[in-house]
Design a protein around this nucleic acid. Structure first.
Lengths: 345, 345
DNA sequence: CTGAAAGCGCTTACAG
DNA sequence: CTGAAAGCGCTTACAG
């Protein structure tokens, strides 16, 4: 048999191989490699050496099947290609890796069907826990997830009834700060391109918007509050319509930076300049992570802290240290002023 | 026992449960659910119904352990929070999901140690295949991976000796097009902020740069070719140094859009305007996916096609349909001219 | 300190 | 068309 032509399909080394070559049972080998029970130092050394020599890589599936734990978590977000989510995912993956957990990343595309499949996929892989940014109207999916008994934590969004654990940012405050900033610059007609009201952060940013208006003694013009569907071109369609309708506004507050950027892109296409003609504020402060050469004023929401917190809570739940406690973490937000907003005064 | 207080830890339904409740053996149940062997239509219906009723979710670990295939792939990239990679990852995940494969996403952070661990992690989970964008100097890791016999495909970068399968974009052409564009606009001193030369795409983009210069009859000034380390602030440090050195140049070609953006950010900080004073060209054309309100001229490299192609090849290899053939795919690149470049003429 | 046995939940031949 | 047996590679009690 020519070694060049057809290499044998490289069977992975198993405990059995190490056992045979060291003279111990697979039992002892297993414990020596995992530091379980007392084994003589000499035996441990011998076995480890042989394992190293054979390039042994444990079969996690087999061990999980028996032990019932996989050291794996799943993160389910709308879309990893959105920097907001990819940053969160990166932080979670890093925190998880520190604790020897591997991370599954699944996209739900704000679609309940896909989200359901993502949850099922995670469960079928027996993940120890799930961090999920629930899509619009995913109550059923979450209720299903809860019934399975798998620990999970909501990230960035929560449900109205609040019986589940979550980590969110202070969206109400963020909405308030953004709006207040514009009001202080003399803007009165502030177009709010919001996300769908089924998303908690959308409702709360709007509440902040309204509080700022109320505190400043201005009435809210409902015409200026728009819900943009989570689809490609959503901003473009909505904003084009607004521009056509000749609705009066001097400032724009977008649900997130991506939408703010797209707004600016669309405004520019219509020869409307930012901030000269329209001031724009975003949300997420993605520029803290991504160098985008457009100085967008934005609400910062401590993505690192939020993500790590979510994993920390999940870890406690996976280790059954939660003692029935509910975790409702709200991480502070603040405004980062850049050059996309200017004073009318 | 109060159902309110302490819910039992929700044991997942198994084939055994379905078997007991339908009167068949787990054997028959398994085949009914998986469409294996001939089973009477009535039995299939009955079993499927019961599975649905009990909310049965197969234990992939157990089935994989026996069958030897996990329907899982791993994607290893430098950093998912970089849009270039997150877009690729998204496309691969989608293509994989279409074929009922789940995707592990692992970051290697351009670090050989982390990359090694990522590979080990993927192997320990018994993935059926791996798509990897190798980090700098990862020859050893790849050689290791090759010895395991797990099918894999390189994405975006390849090794010098070219014995492995890969899908890359036409980087040489991309570098040529970008440079040619600047030359045609009358630029002669073109600063090239490149990545490390251990990365194949870096070497090839440079080759394209040089070919364009040569074809146009201009000498290459080695002072203008800079390798920027893959670290946060790499561009800032390099460019600040260039600015301080008072090196003469009127155009800047960056290894990728992220670096181009960061360059523009740094230039702006130094009150140098783009494109008025410096023309800038990037690579990756991220704006095709992400609305960034800065019209950057960039080389487009068909990310969707490249990613899908990589998965397609991996699929063939996983199904052993490769017949020893080597896959060396080079996907075309083209220039997208926007407003970050202007004519000197 | 080490071993023999059982079992995690499934699938794969093999029987009938 | 369905069943009985074995086994994937590991870990968990239990023995000694």
């Amino acid at each position: 048999m020519s070694d060049e032509q057809e290499r044998p399909p490289a069977k992975a080394t198993t405990l059995k191989d190490i056992a045979e070559q060291t003279g111990f049972t697979i039992n002892t080998v297993s414990r020596a490699l995992k530091n379980k029970g007392d084994i003589s130092a000499a035996t441990i050394k011998l076995i480890r050496q042989k394992a190293e020599e054979l390039g042994y890589i444990g079969n996690v599936m087999a061990s999980s099947l028996r032990s019932g734990t996989t050291k794996t978590i799943a993160v389910i977000v709308a879309d990893v290609s959105n920097p907001h989510f990819s940053i969160a995912v990166k932080e979670i993956e890093r925190a998880a890796r520190m604790q020897d957990y591997t991370t599954f990343i699944l996209n739900a595309y704000e679609d309940q069907e896909v989200e359901r499949k993502a949850i099922q996929s995670a469960l079928s892989k027996n993940v120890d826990g799930i961090i999920i940014c629930p899509s619009q109207g995913s109550e059923n999916n979450l209720a299903f997830l809860e019934r399975t008994g798998t620990p999970f934590v909501l990230l960035g969004r929560h449900l109205e009834d609040d019986t589940m654990d979550y980590v969110v940012s202070d969206d109400e405050k963020g909405g308030y700060l953004a709006t207040m900033h514009l009001l202080e610059l003399g803007h009165r007609d502030i177009l709010f391109l919001n996300a769908h009201h089924s998303i908690s952060s959308s409702r709360e940013r709007l509440a902040g918007y309204k509080r700022a208006m109320a505190e400043s003694g201005f009435a809210v013009n409902p015409e200026l509050i728009r819900e943009v569907p989570h689809l490609t071109g959503g901003v473009k369609n909505e904003l084009s319509e607004v521009i056509k309708s000749r609705l009066a506004y001097t400032a724009l507050f977008a649900f997130n930076d991506m939408m703010a950027w797209e707004s600016i892109y669309v405004l520019n296409k219509h020869h409307i300049r930012v901030p000269d003609q329209i001031s724009v504020v975003g949300f997420d402060n993605i520029q803290s992570r991504l160098f985008v050469p457009f100085p967008l004023t934005s609400v910062s929401n401590a993505k690192g802290k939020t993500s790590r917190k979510a994993f920390e809570i999940l870890l406690k739940k996976m280790h059954k240290q939660n003692s029935g406690k509910r975790y409702h973490e709200v991480v502070d937000t603040r405004l980062v002023v850049r050059e996309s907003t200017r004073s009318l005064l």
